[in-house]
Amino acid sequence: MTLNPWRLRLLNKLEAHGTIRAVATALDLSPSSVSQQLALLETETRTKLLERTGRRVRLTPAGLILARRAAAILDHMDAVEAELRSFGTEPAGLVRLGAFQSAIHTLVTPAVLRLARTYPHLELQVLELEPHESLPALRSGDVDLVITTTDFVEEPLGPDLDLVPLTTDLIVLLVPPGHPTVGLGPADLAAYADEPWAFDRSGSYMSNLTTRLCRQAGFEPKVVGRFSNYSTLLRHVEAGLSVAMLPSLAVDPRYEVATRPLVVPVPRAITAAVRRGAAPRPAVLAVLDALS
């Protein structure tokens, strides 16, 4: 079944105006033309949509349902058309972007530089927000879009958000440069049960993920430090004071730490998210395009 948007609009107008003549007058058409198009819609849907009562027509129950569904369908199509048209409008104004640490260095900073050259009237404000902070901020309207991960089970991505996949990376184990396991193959976490561990902040994505993976390996990690900054955490590992887990994007090569993949790979899907609803502003779309 193929539904013609123009004929759906006529059916919706009939439900609103009540008569074919009133629909014709509102749209500057002849009544016979409106009748013909509605008859074609009945043929397309293979459903009786209209019934005659004397010289008038009225919607059948099926016609009434389709007319009311048509309003939502047409509204959605109008929003999509507006979104596509906005690509031709010069982006300008303030866009507030929430992103976690490693994404700021690897994804956001290059995008900011590109946008500054391309759209001089666009202002991008970057806020460092981990997934447990950024999604509530997006839903409350405190930011316009965020970079997050799809596998943060404590803060699920629901149907109220539109997602734009960006990239993936792997979770890796970090050990000091002189650790006896440097240079070996994939790491079995169970072998690190007695090691001191450095963690991200309590409740954060990496803190929860590291705890969960250690418990799956059969032990409770001995946490000797919690750091809100990955540079501090990397320095702690570099000094030989701990081992840790981080996403590979977060491993700054300036620090002398050794990385090992995990025996069971743990990929992280990184995505941009915006609130679903009205079509995003051209400036927001420009930021999404630069990040992609």
Rank of each mutant, 00 (worst) to 15 (best):
R46D: 11
A22N: 09
V237L: 06
T271P: 00
A103W: 03
V237T: 07
P177K: 10
A278E: 14
P267R: 08
V143Q: 04
V57C: 10
P180V: 06
R56D: 14
T60S: 12
A283G: 05
H121Y: 10
L94G: 05
A286L: 08
E154R: 09
R114I: 11
M77N: 07
Q101M: 08
E133P: 01
I171V: 13
L249E: 01
D142N: 13
A99R: 03
L157W: 00
V287K: 03
R85L: 06
G277V: 02
D142E: 12
Q37L: 10
N12M: 15
G225Y: 03
P265H: 04
V243H: 01
V237E: 06
V57E: 12
G88Q: 10
V172F: 01
N4H: 12
V266H: 13
P261S: 07
E81S: 13
T53Q: 10
S140E: 12
V266L: 11
P280H: 01
P280G: 00
V34M: 00
G158S: 12
F100N: 00
G63S: 07
L49I: 04
L233A: 05
L10E: 08
D169L: 12
H121G: 09
L285P: 01
G141K: 07
V112W: 03
L173C: 03
L166H: 01
L84S: 07
V243T: 01
E15C: 15
L174Y: 05
L209N: 07
R275Q: 08
L174W: 07
L124H: 09
A283C: 01
G93W: 04
E220S: 14
H236T: 12
D75I: 05
A244F: 04
L234N: 02
S202R: 13
S248I: 09
P131F: 02
A286I: 10
Q36A: 13
G141T: 05
M245I: 02
T2P: 02
D78K: 09
R69A: 04
L8Y: 03
H76Y: 02
L157P: 00
F152V: 02
D188T: 09
T106C: 11
A62Y: 00
G225I: 03
D142Q: 15
G141F: 06
A39P: 06
E155T: 15
P186G: 05
I270W: 07
N12Y: 14
A92H: 06
L170S: 13
L94K: 11
L27H: 11
L166Y: 01
A22T: 07
S35F: 12
P221T: 06
L97S: 04
A62W: 02
A103I: 04
P267C: 09
F87K: 06
L249P: 00
V182G: 00
L170A: 15
L246H: 00
P165Q: 05
L288E: 00
V172R: 04
F199Q: 08
P253V: 05
P110D: 11
I104R: 10
L213N: 09
R226W: 05
F100G: 02
A137L: 06
F227A: 13
L38Q: 04
V257Q: 05
S33W: 15
D188V: 07
Y205D: 00
G203L: 07
T25G: 13
L173R: 01
V175I: 03
M206G: 09
